[in-house]
Design a protein around this nucleic acid. Structure first.
Lengths: 209, 209
DNA sequence: GTCAAGAAAAAAACTATTCTTTATCTTAGT
DNA sequence: ACTAAGATAAAGAATAGTTTTTTTCTTGAC
């Protein structure tokens, strides 16, 4: 071949290790508080390795923030309201031991410095939940006249806030419970009673068995 | 006098200027991202002045975070649900141009490093809202069987989250609207219809005329 | 299998800035 | 004028992010 397009497999592993290490350190200390040396050290590598794969600390963080929503895939395939619930619950459970999601949560505020506004994580979650709520509306699960955009925003806000509270008070361990609580508070206002009654929560909704 | 207890008025002004400058810089860049030199510079003072009044950068931040709830005093004196609404709206309006509140919002996650868990800002807001909800319960404004703790937590989470979204998307300017939206979504679930109808929103609830 | 070329990573160097402390000067009260 | 408080200016030691140089590893051609 004329042009070399060599991708070594070792390089891929190194890159993954760096992203994971960076996520851990970002999750602990935020963007400014995390140092590139500490990231390299955590990955068992050196500064040179970092700057070979990423052109700056910002790019490393951007990579982590923008990859968020793809990481959360609910085990069941559900629709409408139940899908909205499943996504948030999956997110909550997965956050418990996925450093990349944890970093995403910690970098929420920092991202304005290195992520284009249209790709920030809030917008991403908003569009997912909005789709679910509209779907729910078509399925006649929602009460008449509910403002779907308002409720989608509220769910995103509430989950973000719940994550922070959980982090401060129980180092995140009860986040899934808090998310479930959010829904139990909200359902009476959004859903028609018959639909509300059908909704399923619990661990099996967020984690594949 | 035997013991000197001299507090110069210049010192008080300097201290206030430092806190304000620190709040501005913390609000822009978070804890780790803010440098003490920049804080001093912003206040029109020097490093020595900072370290004369505060023994470390952490103490400066702690001072700002723990003074939060006292800063928010609704203009009207209301009770029960309406008071809960008033507090959150006042907070939202005041946040628009109070750097200390802005810093408090930005330091939410950082505070775990320098604020004792029992004094973190979430707990402070929780106890205020919890008191209001219990009060509302006594006044028969709430629907039967609502979990007041859950709803108090939800309001705090939702406001925290709303603040972040507002920051990312409109540099905070529509935060009051978003907070009002939170309540409109929530009221049907918490309040009995007669009480919900009576609730008042709008600018006059958050800002003295 | 050998070997050279390029990719991947390590090691080291650079400049700037970090937080904090020290020594020095200025201001205010008695 | 004397003393202590309040502030400046300067310095120190560590670490920041990034770039450059050097070494090690991987790959494909012979």
């Amino acid at each position: 071949m004329a042009v070399r397009e060599v991708k070594q497999e070792r390089a891929a592993r190194t890159r993954a290790a760096l992203i994971r290490a960076a996520a851990e350190v970002f999750a602990e200390s935020g963007f400014a508080g995390a140092s590139v040396s500490r990231i390299a050290e955590r990955a068992g590598l050196t500064l040179g390795a970092v700057y070979f794969h990423f052109k700056s600390k910002e790019e490393l963080a951007r990579e982590i923030v923008t990859s968020q929503p793809d990481l959360v895939v609910p085990p069941q395939d559900s629709h409408g309201l139940q899908h909205a619930i499943d996504v948030t619950l999956t997110w909550a459970y997965q956050l418990l031991d996925d450093p990349v999601l944890q970093a995403g949560a910690r970098l929420v505020m920092d991202q304005e410095h290195f992520v284009p506004k249209s790709e920030n994580s809030h917008q991403q979650w908003m569009s997912i939940l909005l789709r679910d709520f509209r779907d729910a509306q078509v399925r006649r699960e929602l009460r008449l006249g509910v403002d779907v955009e308002a409720y989608a925003r509220l769910v995103v806000s509430a989950c973000t806030g719940a994550q922070m509270q959980a982090q401060l008070e129980t180092s995140r361990s009860d986040l899934p419970y808090r998310v479930e609580e959010v829904w139990r508070c909200l359902l009476p206002a959004v859903a028609v009673p018959s639909a509300a009654k059908k909704m399923q929560f619990g661990r099996e909704r967020g984690v594949a068995e």
